[in-house]
Design a protein around this nucleic acid. Structure first.
Lengths: 344, 344
DNA sequence: CAAGATTCTTGGATCGGTCCAAATGCCGCT
DNA sequence: AGCGGCATTTGGACCGATCCAAGAATCTTG
């Protein structure tokens, strides 16, 4: 491998001059510069190796995004909600000329210490131990969708407010018979659960889910409805049977609160295939605003979880440096075609 | 910043031993190891800095993907077709524990030489000059969707075959009246063009588009149809008016060949809003298979451009090393709900 | 034409590690 | 106690650059 010093030697100049030819061409006199360039050409040298420069300068000029635990990189890339986060991060990267690194779950898991970036964005709370490593490495980091405390940069959406908005919207449309399609929580035997009690899921799962539920609960209780009596199905976001199960156990519901867009869309599809009209017979509201929400028929009313904004803010927290910041973003209800007045 | 050598000094051992404590803990005797670990803890040292290691070992353990020219990182992240490529790349990265770098258009543009990765994936032919820099830097690279010659790794889909399959499918369903929704080419005054001649667009644009068109042309000509006489609209993939324009200029068409999924879906929507039934009155076939194709109503018959596979192959070409390979992937027609027998 | 003011060029130090061959220390064994 | 043999530990070299103070060359100017 030909190095800068080889070029310098070949051109009969010092390394410094050769370095200048590539980094500050204008301060080296033309004839010398020509000689160095010729030598570089001769030897097939295409400019300084970034590895050396990196060691010296210390900046990667890149932000890393860490997949949540037990999540592969592909999952991150493919997931439309995660994609919003990546969009936000890359917007900021574009503006500042930085690159985006998606860390391999494999590599990142055990040796976070080898991540080649100036900062790391973690998402979800389950990564706190790793964040600890980042802290030790003195590398800036930010946590998305969870607030681990005052020492740590964090960005999250006020999911409770989002859930509240969603439920409130349906209440204002006159709905009183609800059904909830929630996420699967670990530690449950079945993926279908009729909530018979007011006990909310314990905090072991994804924090935002619980917040959404609390938002629903608050709005409903204002209308005198006990969320403990609302039929609920908990299922994986990709479980294709959840929508059907929900409609099975809640045939009288006129409004469905879904915690995800994809499940919301499935509810619409399932309802239509059962001869219900959406929104005349059944209203559906989702959570998060991915493009699919707009393209479904009817389009899905949903709470915009401000995914792009979260990515932007997290990236800025890292790139701007300074003391830890904690941003809480207000979600915005996007009213579309899947919600309408309760049937008379 | 505390360095390995500081820890070593504090623990009263050599750098090598300290290094071993972090990299080969089992070869250093327990009491010494303890001492080093204590010192590290004391000083707040969280393990070797990857910058130093990198210089020594020379491997980034990462693959970079370069946005096409004039395309920002966000565009890449957001674009569903590009997303398939990224999925493929990250699948391979996951398998091998490598990270994925999306290069900032900004940074990448002028100083490709500073990309921190072991290999670069270029997409589209417009990046040949940059590939030249990569060649000089002796960094492996692969080009997607274009074959720059025998010296260079490349992966592309046989778009001509894809176009042929699409058109053939419609012909076999009995269609004879076609309309084509193509991409916008540069250097044209208008974005709407009725092809009045058999002259195909010159090769200035994206190579695969022309190939698709040639595939269409071949299939149609077998059925005695001159593609020069087929109404065609050229438009940007996001132009919301293209579908309408196409139906305007080709009211008698029973089948639309669209070069993209999104435009295909728009054609379906536009047709339905004009009172046409899809596929009974109008069949639509797209190109590339993104999730939206499956979720439209009716779902879109489309040619799977094997985007994920392209990403996988390109990543493998880079990671496996060896002499340049050139893979041509055969596309697969996905017949769905938007195509049916020609109306009698 | 030489001293002084500029402008270039240079060598040494540094960035933070890892690797390897040589040196040291430790052990049991005779 | 002395010694071979093995397991640890060590210092030097190297990875590939950039930066900076100081020396050398060039240009001004009296």
């Amino acid at each position: 491998m030909v190095r800068l010093v080889d070029v310098a030697k070949a051109a009969g100049v010092s390394r410094s001059t050769a370095s200048n030819v590539f980094n500050n061409p204008d301060i080296v006199r033309p004839n010398l510069r020509k000689r160095v360039e010729a030598a570089a050409n001769e030897l097939g040298y295409a400019g300084p190796d970034p590895k050396g420069r990196l060691l010296r300068e210390g900046k990667f000029n890149a932000i890393a995004v860490m997949p949540p635990i037990k999540t592969s990189m592909v999952d991150v890339i493919r997931n439309p909600v995660f994609n919003l986060l990546l969009q936000g991060v890359s917007e900021v990267c574009d503006e500042r000329g930085a690159s985006l690194v998606v860390v391999s779950g494999h590599a990142g898991r055990n040796n976070l210490g080898s991540v080649l970036a100036d900062g790391i964005i973690f998402s979800r709370m389950d990564q706190l131990e790793e964040a600890e490593t980042a802290r030790l490495r003195r590398i800036p980091y930010a946590v998305v969708d969870f607030d681990p405390g005052p020492q740590v940069n964090s960005v999250r959406v006020d999911a409770k407010a989002g859930g509240y908005q969603a439920a409130r919207h349906l209440l204002e449309l006159g709905h009183r018979k609800f059904a909830i399609l929630s996420f699967l929580r670990e530690g449950r035997g079945s993926n279908v659960i009729e909530t018979g009690s007011t006990r909310l899921p314990e905090s072991a799962g994804i924090a935002t889910d619980q917040e959404k539920l609390m938002g629903y609960a608050n709005a409903l209780s204002e209308a005198g409805i006990d969320i403990g009596a609302v039929p609920m199905v908990q299922a994986d976001a990709n479980d294709p049977e959840a929508a059907g199960k929900l409609l099975d156990i809640a045939p009288e519901a006129t409004a469905v609160l879904s915690m995800s867009v994809m499940q919301g869309i499935r509810v619409i599809g399932e309802a239509i295939s059962r001869g219900l009209r959406v929104p005349q017979d059944l209203s559906v509201v989702g959570f998060n605003d991915i493009p699919a929400a707009e393209h479904s028929v009817p389009s899905l009313t949903t709470v915009d979880g401000m995914g792009v904004q979260k990515g932007r803010d997290a990236a800025c927290q890292i790139l701007d440096g300074g003391p830890p910041r904690h941003k809480i973003i207000q979600p915005v209800l996007k009213v579309r075609g899947s919600s309408g007045p309760a049937p008379a």
